[in-house]
């Protein structure tokens, strides 16, 4: 460290003080940070002004929604009632549906569909229509005002249809401790022969 003078200028309680020059790189970065801050402030004041956060958010949203629209146009999901009903007899679909049901639905509708916070799914009464298409719509779009989330935004398409098929398979199982029937009676559509 030959560049330092190491000249003692004060001494107190046995502590000596040198007065070596400050490291050059340190001062250079310091002045650099001050200049950067000044430049950023000028740039910020001139270029963004009020509400740059909102502007960035709008731009991000617009870009994302456009990309999603392109994707959906290319990959539409239009399950037919027949597909959904057939799923209620397909063990592979039912296994997928059951596991997703346990994860996302059981906390409100009960582990066996007997109803808990949400209505009983095993009886023949329905608050929002009991046809397989209506059930699909209820699951996909939800009833946010009543606490049913729009699962179409949270489940992959295959799981969404599988859950609907699984719910159809619960019809008439009547588990113990079920919630009292709510809504209108509906005779379930027949399942296809296997």
């Amino acid at each position: 460290m030959a560049e330092f003078e190491d000249k003692v200028i004060h001494e107190l309680d046995g502590i000596k003080e040198y007065d070596n020059p400050m490291p050059g790189w340190l001062m250079a970065i310091w002045w650099g940070s001050i200049l950067f801050a000044a430049a950023y402030l000028v740039f910020y004041a001139l270029a963004f002004g009020e509400g740059s956060m909102e502007a960035e958010y709008r731009a991000e949203t617009d870009r994302a929604l456009a990309a999603i629209q392109v994707y959906l146009d290319a990959n539409p999901l239009v399950p037919s009632p027949e597909e959904l009903l057939a799923g209620a007899r397909d063990p592979v679909v039912l296994e997928l549906g059951a596991s997703r049901y346990a994860r996302s639905c059981a906390s409100c509708h009960g582990a066996e569909g007997q109803g808990l916070i949400g209505p009983n799914l095993t009886d023949d009464h329905w608050l929002h229509g009991g046809s397989i298409s209506e059930v699909f719509l209820s699951v996909a779009k939800g009833w946010p005002a009543k606490g049913m989330p729009p699962w179409g935004r949270a489940m992959p398409p295959a799981e969404l249809t599988a859950v609907v098929s699984y719910v159809r398979s619960l019809q008439g199982t009547h588990p113990a401790g079920g919630r009292a029937p709510e809504g209108q009676p509906f005779t379930p559509e027949p399942l296809p022969e296997t």
Binding site: L65, L72, S133, L137, A140
Partner: peptide
């Protein structure tokens, strides 16, 4: 929520 509300073409399902 900003549209599209659903990433699914569910509106084409006939009730």
């Amino acid at each position: 929520r900003p549209e599209p509300a659903l990433p699914l073409a569910v509106t084409s399902v006939e009730p």
